[in-house]
Design a protein around this nucleic acid. Structure first.
Lengths: 216, 216
DNA sequence: CTAGGATAAGTTGGATCCAATCCAGGATCA
DNA sequence: TGATCCTGGATTGGATCCAACTTATCCTAG
């Protein structure tokens, strides 16, 4: 989230991206070009460009002459996105693992401490996202990491809805998994790291599958 | 590839997509908005929209005030795309496997026969792409299949360059793998199907890794 | 002769206006 | 009463014009 990109379309895209990821614009909600243009003091043209950018990130969908809206995903679709994550994210983890240094491990440990200390849903969402994306930060494969970010973006709303419904109980499981992941990374063990990460995502998926009310 | 979409931006996007996938516009090549607009008899605006659509498909990349170009990928990047394919495509295969019927198997068998009978590089490229995408056609998970199409799009040029350099020799290996894949699908065996498919992609990747001259 | 900077041409980004399309509401006719 | 057609407002798609940026060229200074 840069302060103010020089290009209007990028600034507008950043604004809308934040509004969607924070939940202020929810799934199924329509985004009218003129509304956004008036609200951000620009013409409709850069808004159109911004919406196209967001479409590339999986944050909006378009239909000709019908405008843009935030996609409303079904349980089945989100389950598939998680299954894709289970296979793709370990790839980024093991690919970057040789370049993980002590400083990064310290940052991860400190992040996990803040996650365990936190209480709010919004705080957990942000820190958990930061934690996992940080474990992929040494990967240096733009095509892969942007794909992972897209997967996180598309599922962000349902993660928040799940956490809001179920509360923050039983978070100790995720904490244990995170710590095991850090430990495997510290050992530089790609097999264990991949196993813990895939298990972590898979468990999240099966837990989510028990709460269809997230998708009504 | 519809005949003529009612919306100009979609028509232009389809045109450019065909030009990029066919190799008439190669990696690193710049795409000037005005050129395309003049050539297709439209203003620059729908061209801008079309370029954004193609960006979402991984066919172009943009930089502010610098225009669009077809990405020139390095060996390392293409290798990673293949590793992603190894993990993601089996997911689509096994997910759609229960809905595979005899008619689809017949079409695959016939396609494979045409692949084995063919000689030209362009013909092989088109038929091979059609073959594999057809094995995923029963998946009905738009998010997954569009991701796979993006992966094929991004690597299309390097597949053609590889085939052009190495010629059509040793294609019998791919034929054998295709036939084993069809056979596993006929048995409805997800484990074998996934294994054959992953192996097929992996072998292609390792063969490509022996030809760095593709990327000069 | 080279390095640096000013300048001009070429290209993209943005604003405004107009056209085409979609959707909801109501009128008309069987 | 019901369905169909029409019409009006609302919204998006497209064209033209102007502004901003990038880049290459050429000139000047060292």
């Amino acid at each position: 989230m840069t302060a103010s990109p020089e290009v209007a379309s990028q600034r507008i895209a950043a604004h809308l991206r934040a509004e969607i990821l924070s939940g202020r614009i929810g799934p199924g909600e329509r985004i009218r070009q003129e509304d956004v243009a008036a609200r951000l003091g620009a013409s409709r043209l850069p808004v159109r460009e911004a919406l196209r950018m967001l479409e590339a990130e999986g944050l909006t969908e378009h239909a000709a002459n019908r405008g843009a809206r935030v996609p409303a995903l079904s349980m089945r679709q989100v389950q598939m996105l998680y299954r894709i994550r289970e296979r793709v994210e370990p790839l980024a983890l093991t690919d970057g693992l040789p370049h993980v240094d002590a400083a990064l491990l310290d940052r991860l440990t400190e992040l996990e401490a803040r996650i365990e200390a936190g209480t709010g849903v919004g705080e957990f969402l942000a820190l958990d996202r930061e934690f996992h994306l940080l474990t992929y930060s040494t990967c240096d494969q733009e095509l892969l990491t942007s794909m992972i970010v897209r997967l996180w973006n598309s599922t962000q709303h349902y993660r928040r809805a799940y956490l809001t419904i179920t509360g923050m109980s039983h978070r100790w499981i995720a904490h244990a998994e995170h710590n095991l992941l850090i430990e495997a990374m510290r050992r530089g063990d790609p097999d264990d790291a991949e196993r813990y990460l895939a298990g972590h995502i898979r468990r999240t998926r099966t837990e989510l599958s028990r709460h269809p009310e997230v998708f009504v």
